[in-house]
Nucleic acid binder design. Structure first.
Lengths: 122, 122
DNA sequence: GCTACACTTGACGAAATGCTCAAGTGTTGT
DNA sequence: ACAACACTTGAGCATTTCGTCAAGTGTAGC
């Protein structure tokens, strides 16, 4: 357990009493945590399929259920998680609840990921 | 299990013998799978912290271990997974193995995710 | 108020994930 | 050839995650 030689409590590498150089330390903890949360939510095949639909247009749960050929509670659970991560937002209209991507930033992230997934072999 | 009325094997909604409209069907299966794989790999706090370092510059495992204040096998396992998803690539130099992000597309994805994570409250 | 429709939620079990430890591989220096 | 350094890997265990089912909430129409 004493493999890491404990320099200064400051953290990285050698230099004792200087500010930790610059970017040999990871991004802000909160930032990473939030980003990881988003990525984790996007990192599931079923959810990403769902999101690839919402990337085109707003849809209600029934519609999603039909397009994805899956059972409704399953879809609803996925939407719940995506809502918790603020990746989608809802709008109620009568008995229907419509879902869409939360913002264009998210839309970009998804579009980029899918674009990368499309590349030939790489 | 007979909740979904089985239309045509084609897939979505009602219209029997037409092409499935347009984008009421999810993106290509392979595309989604690959993209989900990438997102899943990015969707872990420890791995994302690691990647936020590699976003700045190439680093060897020992260096990463020091910066992240974690034990070496743990880091190595994470790198193995990231390598498997082709998110990072390696280069050997003497006894050291240097890791860096696989391409600029991945770098963008990570930068975008972190940027979104930085936003105030939202 | 009652019924039907459109969802949401809680709980449980099965499967995937992540960490740790011990042992193994590859490279350099003597 | 041997020892030391820099990793990688396989196995086992503790969590976490996902899907499913049964039950619950909210809205609209009669």
């Amino acid at each position: 357990m004493a493999t890491l030689n404990e320099e200064e409590s400051s953290g990285c590498i050698g230099e004792p009493h200087h500010e930790v150089p610059s970017e040999i330390r990871p991004a802000e903890e909160k930032t990473c945590a939030r980003a990881a949360g988003i990525f984790r939510a996007l990192g599931d095949l079923s959810r990403l399929r769902l999101l690839s639909l919402l990337a085109n247009r707003e849809m209600c749960v029934t519609e999603l259920t039909e397009c994805l050929q899956d059972n409704l509670p399953a879809i609803s659970q996925r939407l719940k998680l995506l809502r918790a991560e603020r990746i989608v937002v809802t709008r109620r209209q009568g008995k229907h609840i419509f879902y869409r991507l939360a913002d264009s930033h998210i839309a970009h992230l998804i579009a980029n990921g899918l674009a990368h997934g499309e590349e030939p072999d790489e």
